[in-house]
């Protein structure tokens, strides 16, 4: 039996999948099992598939994905906490032929940046917003987020979110869907291969809308786990997310081609 060398395997004709060149080689700083890495990859794969590597400007947030620009191999700006949609507004208006997106977490987009989010959506800025919702402030060590669900324990709601004291979790995605300036609003997840494929179709549709100069903003929420913040294993975190987050944040399209679908 002849020996098979590595060089006999690594051949172009055997290649079934490779990392997009629009992800840098820098090791991701995200916790194993977190949805950020997968979502980064999907966004960058789509930019590559659309052939827009040289016409894209991304805006990174403050939060766990503060270093998104280290991993996304396109021109990037790093915004102050919550302000990414304001940066993206000006970038797109001054370079209308470019593809412009923001990548933001729940604290960034739905707490400190609520005004920028609502008004960019309401003006119908022709940008894409990718919104990672894991119901917690991961970067600062697991504090309560605007999207933390009722009863959920965090370091600043250690006995669980008591809505009579701490207010209610904010369904900002349903909220922006009501605004006439949004054209496509959807909620996805990336915890299974099937979910990843659906999320990729949704994110691609969002960027395709911008490419087609669709009259409004495309908004993609990705519900993700935060296994370290939730203090669970990645597998347990995904189960917990499906059982507890999805009933409150149901997966699927909310607004398509400017029309509410649910």
């Amino acid at each position: 039996m002849s020996e098979i060398a590595l060089k006999d395997i690594i051949k172009p004709e055997n290649l079934v999948y490779q990392k997009t060149k629009l992800m840098t080689d820098k090791p991701l700083s995200y916790c194993p099992g977190c949805g950020h890495g997968t979502t980064h990859r999907l966004v960058m794969e789509i930019i590559e598939e659309l052939g827009k590597e040289h016409e894209t400007v991304g805006v990174a947030p403050v939060g766990c994905s503060v270093l998104a620009y280290e991993f996304m191999n396109v021109d990037m700006q790093e915004a102050a906490h919550g302000r990414a949609p304001a940066l993206a507004t000006a970038i797109k208006r001054l370079w209308p032929g470019n593809i412009v997106f923001t990548y933001q977490g729940d604290g960034d987009l739905a707490a400190i940046g609520t005004a920028e989010t609502i008004h960019a959506c309401n003006r119908g800025e022709k940008i894409v917003i990718i919104f990672i919702n894991n119901g917690i402030y991961g970067m600062t060590g697991g504090q309560m987020a605007p999207t933390t669900i009722e009863g959920m324990k965090t370091s600043t709601s250690p006995y669980g979110r008591d809505v009579s004291i701490m207010g209610y979790p904010l369904k900002i995605t349903e909220l922006v869907a009501q605004l006439p300036g949004t054209y496509y609003v959807t909620r996805q997840s990336v915890q299974t291969p099937s979910a990843v494929r659906k999320a990729k179709r949704a994110i691609k549709k969002a960027f395709q809308n911008q490419l087609n100069n669709a009259p409004g903003l495309s908004f993609v929420e990705v519900v993700s786990n935060c296994n370290s913040g939730w203090k669970m294993t990645p597998v347990d975190a995904n189960h917990w997310m499906e059982e507890n987050m999805f009933p409150f944040y149901p997966i699927g399209d909310i607004k398509v081609d400017g029309q509410l679908v649910k």
């Binding site: 700006q77 102050a80 304001a86 940066l87 507004t89 970038i91 001054l94 005004a115 920028e116 609502i118």
Partner: peptide, 26 residues
Amino acid sequence: MVVLQAESEVASINMLYGGGGTGKKV
């Protein structure tokens, strides 16, 4: 030239970050 009334001064200055960051005069 683009002229835009922002939702706040906070948004205005961050629009300048974004726009100025692309090399445009803002």
